[in-house]
Design a protein around this nucleic acid. Structure first.
Length: 271
DNA sequence: CTCGGAGCCTGTCTGC
DNA sequence: TGCAGACAGGCTCCGA
């Protein structure tokens, strides 16, 4: 589910709801998979909510000192982070952790239990290895430099999923981006010409920006911090559209498997 | 270093 | 209808 646009949506929607509140108590309901020093987090102020890579980060500060720590929430496949005005979260299904605030509670739900909670003592520790494509550092030159690392034999779509190169792209946008760029799934990163790298850069920017503007893509799981669904699924051109006509050239969209993941593409206009 | 495959979990959908 | 198997948006670990 959550790729960069969805995580950004969660962070943006939660920020006005929970920033400035105090964490009264933290309850971990899935101790088999999640561990946190919950007592350390109690009575801390929730200063800021933001996205870093694919994690939602909560900056927590103690009243007595100015030192902050950061709680990283990684939603993985089915995680949700929701603010609820009432204290009724225990009745919801798949609740893994509850952060009781002075007003309402922040609820971490996760059906498949892949999600993680990580406590960072310094923000540096949460910094992902890859380049964030929404930042000013993501230039064509920077993309070219990232693509030049390694042998160049890797296929474009699996490369787009590498979080140690670019952060935030998952299987949906890794299908959409090459379609926007007109690049086929069998292309290796080493085969990309200068002009194609330029198109790829533009496609990454445009697809992620448009998806953030649409509050992400919702199929079944994803909701924002208020429980609102995204609408980018209406803009998807190839993902999940096997057998349908390509909106650009009319050819029939195909599906194949790369590294055990579905890849959707248009054989007509992706070369 | 790179790459491919298995594994972590649960729910839903498909085909027999 | 019932049930086994495939599949799902992420990521890490392991071995070659």
């Amino acid at each position: 589910m959550p790729e960069l646009p969805e995580v950004e949506t969660v962070a943006r929607s939660l920020a006005p709801l929970v920033e400035g509140q105090t964490v009264m108590r933290v309850r971990i309901l899935d101790r088999a998979r999640l561990e946190l020093p919950t007592r350390r987090l109690a009575r801390r102020h929730l200063i800021r909510v933001f996205r870093l890579g694919k994690e939602v980060l909560l900056e927590l500060a103690k009243t007595s000192s100015r030192r902050s720590c950061w709680l990283g929430v990684h939603l993985r496949m089915t995680g949700r982070l929701l603010w609820r005005p009432d204290r009724d979260a225990a009745e919801l299904p798949h609740v893994r952790a509850i952060f009781e605030l002075d007003r309402g509670q922040l609820v971490f739900q996760d059906t498949r239990r892949f999600g993680t909670l990580t406590l960072y003592d310094a923000l540096d520790m949460a910094q992902p290895a890859g380049l964030d494509p929404t930042t000013g550092a993501f230039t064509v030159e920077a993309l070219r430099a990232q693509l030049a690392r390694g042998s160049g034999a890797q296929l474009l779509k699996p490369w787009l999923l590498r979080q140690d190169r670019l952060v935030g792209i998952g299987n949906i946008y890794a299908a959409e981006i090459p379609h926007h760029a007109g690049l086929g799934p069998h292309r290796t990163v080493g085969s990309l010409h200068r002009a194609e790298i330029g198109r790829l850069h533009l496609a990454i920017r445009e697809v992620l920006t448009a998806a953030i503007d649409a509050c992400g893509t919702t199929f079944s799981d994803f909701q924002s911090g208020r429980g609102v669904e995204g609408s980018y699924q209406q803009h998807l051109r190839v993902y999940g559209r096997e057998g349908e006509p390509c909106p650009r050239c009319g050819a029939t969209i195909e599906k194949l498997t790369q590294q055990q993941r579905s890849t959707f593409y248009c054989p007509g206009c992706q070369r």
